[in-house]
Amino acid sequence: MYVTCRQNGLSYTGRMSTGLNDSEIISKVLSGDQQAYAGLVNRYQTYVFTLALRFTKNREDAEEVSQDIFIKAYRALADFKGTSKFSTWLYTIVNNTCITFLRKKRLQTHSLDNEGVFEVADSQDSGLRANLVEQKSRVAMVNSAIGLLGPDDAEIITLFYKSEQTLEEIAQILGLETNTAKVRLHRARTRLKEKMQQHFSEEVKDIYN
């Protein structure tokens, strides 16, 4: 099971820019080739940045947090045991770093049912939403709707749909039971559907009809 997942992970990420898979790059970095780490940064920067953006809600903070994440991952690279995919290990660092960031910012992150979180997200993302109505693009609408969700919901949706993580891996990243992660994902999608109907009713009608 593990071998299959790992192979899937490597085949997906394997030959993008460096021609080396994650394990090969990590071996090179650990043996002293610091520049090889750029291969991992290039490969995962959009995933890490998107996840960070789900928490921070603005690009400047997301960029700073993402840099911090890659620096932490570099420092702790010797602790990566290879028992999971590198991406799963990296997203665990993303999750912890982003939660710390939110704590510092004194935002509430843990309550799934806290409407206040959505209100914060609503106010922070209103500019993007206004821009989106003009674009009438499906993709932009979904991205913007995800931006309106609370960090917990936005994170789990991004991990499942964009970061190539299974429910078991998501549970590992978030420190939850698999079933709990599954329930959280269901709830997050339900809330996303509500957000789309609430804020983009015209676009949603076009899609459903």
Partner: peptide, 30 residues
């Protein structure tokens, strides 16, 4: 729709910034 959502990209200098930062650091022992 969720499958069609897109990843966000950081600035062009992102990798360079990270590499500059880590050039001053060492990997911590396991």
């Amino acid at each position: 729709l969720l499958r069609s959502s897109e990843l966000e990209a950081p600035s062009m200098r992102f990798t360079k910034n990270v590499m500059e930062e880590i050039s001053r650091l060492h990997i911590a022992p396991a």
